[in-house]
């Protein structure tokens, strides 16, 4: 358990955020569970009573910054993860991959690299470093494993941008997020159709109001945590 390293300050400081904080604690427990898979990540939602215990490493992880910068780094981290996955996929295609699948996975790889490199340049000195990932749980020789992972990443990406949109303060960044999220949704729909034609927007991702998933940064990061090897410090990343 010692790899779990909560940050120093509680993310939510207002008293009225008590309920949200409680949710944050639940996310924290997810992190704790994930630690069994030797993950080392700083919790996005810590709790005050942990701040002085020996689980506190003083915030040595990669610092995402605060406000919009933190959100851009959060997007950058997710794009890095997706790019790493598709690079490995295209370099080691599963046997029997169709021409169309190979062409479209190559397209998607290039899109994710474009997103990754864009954030890197746009963030400049404020960009986090290259993250290390743990993709060992993915069987790249298995079409089913690859498609299932792609579906997870794409749906997660869509829900991440949808859920973080209202936290963004600068309309230019919001527009950029909007330009990217619909491309991720196009990917998600295609990957889903490769698994089961017609599942592009099924009930797993679209509710009875016709709305797609939207998830808070803390929820998204806990889902991505098993794939992220590097320590990250997201204590100032806006979330809810």
């Amino acid at each position: 358990m010692k790899k779990i390293t909560p940050n120093n300050e509680p993310l939510l400081t207002s008293d009225s955020e008590f309920e949200k904080k409680d949710l944050g604690r639940r996310d924290f427990l997810k992190f704790a569970g994930a630690s069994a898979a030797s993950l080392a990540i700083l919790s996005v939602a810590s709790c005050k009573k942990d701040r002085d215990d020996d689980m506190d490493n003083g915030g040595k992880g990669m610092y995402f910054g605060s406000g919009d910068i933190a959100i851009l780094n959060y997007a950058y981290a997710l794009e890095q993860l997706e790019a790493a996955f598709y690079i490995q996929l295209v370099n080691n295609p599963y046997s029997g991959i169709s021409d169309m699948e190979k062409a479209f996975f190559t397209d998607i790889r290039d899109h994710e690299i474009a997103h990754r490199e864009f954030f890197k340049v746009a963030l400049g000195a404020k960009a986090i470093s290259n993250l290390e990932f743990n993709l060992s749980g993915i069987n790249f020789s298995s079409r089913a494993s690859v498609l299932a992972t792609a579906k997870t990443f794409e749906d997660l990406g869509v829900s991440a941008y949808n859920g973080a949109g209202w936290l963004i303060k600068d309309p230019k960044y919001l527009l950029l997020a909007g330009k990217i999220v619909s491309v991720e949704a196009r990917h998600a729909a295609w990957v889903r159709d490769m698994i089961d034609n017609g599942s592009f927007a099924n009930q797993e991702v679209v509710d009875s109001n016709g709305l797609d998933l939207a998830k808070s940064p803390s929820v998204v990061l806990s889902a991505a945590a098993p794939f992220i090897k590097s320590k990250i410090d997201v204590k100032d990343l806006p979330t809810y």
Binding site: R186, A189, W190
Partner: peptide
Amino acid sequence: NRVVLTAALQIHSVEARHASH
């Protein structure tokens, strides 16, 4: 706008899924 922007984004990505299909 937490409620309205989020809902608009949630519709927006569904339209993109449709477009893809």
